[in-house]
Nucleic acid binder design. Structure first.
Lengths: 215, 215, 215, 215
DNA sequence: TATGAATGAGTATTCATTCAT
DNA sequence: TATGAATGAATACTCATTCAT
């Protein structure tokens, strides 16, 4: 066997491998798309593995070649959701000129994302909660998701530092905005905010005003 | 039969009735305690009717004598939780002299209650969510629970009005505090707040400071 | 103790006993009425003991003082139904002058009774079937109900004999009419007769015509 | 790969497919057999899904792979029963030369089938009744079963037309025979016919005699 | 006579997961 | 890589009946 042929073989192998990976990724993607659809239509409770498999045109058993467990599918869904979230936040922040408008832009993007995709919030809390127990991997996945989440909120911390805050203060500010928005969304989406005849957008606006008022 | 004996009989009857009621209430209480225990140990998902019955030393069927459905048990649990919450908030507010300290006291009591009883928060969100569908009066129960919740936060709105805010502003303030605390708790309890090296208590303190700063 | 007083006592006893029996019979009647209502509204499946008790304003357990079992209630219901049936048949026959019209009258009364009270037919078949197993008494009850049923159809046999048939032939004729009507009703009530675009009344009329045609 | 081998592969594929189908059909058949056994032993009431599964050597859940619901099992059982019925009727009719003997043959085959398989009658009435509600296509199934039933009785209508009856008359005749036989069977099988010391066979014979007597 | 409380057996159905093929 | 078949455990809830009071 000549060198050339070896190289060719390796190349073919590599290409074959790459193609395999690509095909696999595509299939995973199709399953996740199906999961997203089921999930959006039926909510967390209705998004059984069977339902997802059916929607994806698969047998339930087939999904186990692509994901370790149902939780793994959820986790992948959440990871992808966090990616979209980050894109939205980054996009919004990019258009803002001043640190203050960057904080506002990031906050509103964050709020808007979940207000328009309430199920993604569900997903987040489901997994960040008691889920993730069974299949061990939990730990790694958790930190990965955590990092993705932190990245999404980083623009707020960055802008806060640009405003003269210390790093600790900046982090606290990001956390504060994060918590406030999550609280508002939860109460809003469960209809509890109606009790106070309060609109979440107004409350958020006021919160940002107070937060950004010159001290 | 003399008048005296008649009176005694009536009294006995009444007492018998009262005892029956008391016994019933006690048994309901025991079941609810069992439910709380299971709930604390296994989380909402694991708190099946069977599990609750077993923990209470009953057969599943027996619970249906005391409660109409599983959701009814949850609802009772939540109602009782909201009662305790209100007691805590009212107790804290009673000790405060000025409107501002009353807001702070109420907010901290609210926060403290759920920080110490995280499962009660779960319960609230479970029921305030999609639950409550199948049996029971759903609707009635929902409004009753809503009212209990609103009552717990009323001290904040009252104090806000005492500070000179309009009724609408006062309501918004209660909603704002409510949302902020819920957000903080959720992130704290799911460990997300650690990402920002932020302590929920500090964040709440700062939020209240900003909120109560003279404009 | 004087004779008079003895008599009075006995009388009182009897009266007391009689009253007790009367009261008991009345209560049984009230329960049966309730059962009939539930039964008419919900059908056999829905007529649970609980439902009957509730409708009668009783606790399920209370019914066991008046009836041995659920089957016993059904049996009493059926007995009463058969009484009403007999009244209808007898009433119809009484108005007819000739043997042939008596056969017709009896048949139509029988048909009409069950066409208007389809649930009574259900009841009959339920009990005449596999039911009646548990509580032993089955045997006695069965023969009693059988006799009541036979009595209802006796007018047909009588009229047949009046037409010159032997006793055996007359019995066969009654059986024939009975079977034909039951068959028609069953198929009619389950909608199977529609398959043939046939009306049960016409079929019955023709059957009677053939049966009564001079040989 | 030569053409021959391709052909072989296709054949294997087809056979594989065919085998899969065959295996599936066989398993369904085994389950249905089990159901029939349970059904015969315990009656309709006792033929729970669990019992059927146990008898078939399956877990309850496994049955859901082969049938959509318990009602679907019943429906399949009935469909198969109607097939056997039709075979018997068709077979009997095929041997008869004249229209009149064809009517008689069909009627006796129909009668004989249910006299020997009383449970099939139960099944029919159960499903043709209120059943069929929950899952499954109910409607479709109902009409399919109706058609199967109608087909079984078609020979009678055909023969009636051959005798010179109009189509409507022929249909009525089929309905009449159907009703009479069902009535006889029901009374016979529940022991009610004994009341009249009447044998169902004699009554059917006489009914057919009258029906087929030249007018 | 009636109740309240409780039982135990039962119902059909759903779930995530596994494994031989 | 995917399927078909199967599992075992779980679900909430209903039933007729019993028994101490």
């Amino acid at each position: 066997m000549s060198e050339g042929s070896e190289a060719l073989e390796r190349q073919a192998e590599v290409r074959g491998h790459g193609r395999k990976q690509a095909v696999d990724a595509m299939k995973r993607g199709l399953i996740l798309d199906a999961a997203k659809r089921v999930f959006a239509a039926e909510g967390l409770e209705g998004a059984s593995l069977r339902a997802i498999a059916a929607e994806a045109g698969y047998t339930p058993a087939a999904l186990y070649f692509h994901f370790d467990s149902k939780e793994a599918i959820y986790a992948a869904l959440l990871a992808e959701s966090l990616d979209r979230l980050q894109d939205m936040v980054d996009g919004a922040v990019a258009k803002a000129r001043t640190p203050k408008t960057r904080v506002r832009a990031a906050a509103w993007a964050f709020y808007g994302f979940y207000a328009e995709n309430p199920h993604d919030l569900d997903l987040g809390f489901y997994l960040f909660r008691g889920g993730m127990k069974p299949k061990g991997v939990g730990r790694d996945r958790d930190t990965a998701l955590n990092e993705a989440l932190a990245r999404s909120l980083q623009p707020i911390a960055d802008a806060a530092q640009a405003l003269g805050h210390s790093e600790a203060e900046a982090r606290a500010m990001a956390a504060d905005v994060f918590a406030h928005i999550v609280g508002l969304l939860l109460l809003h989406l469960t209809g509890r905010l109606r009790l106070f005849a309060a609109a979440p957008e107004e409350l958020l606006e006021q919160h940002l005003d107070r937060l950004l008022a010159a001290p």
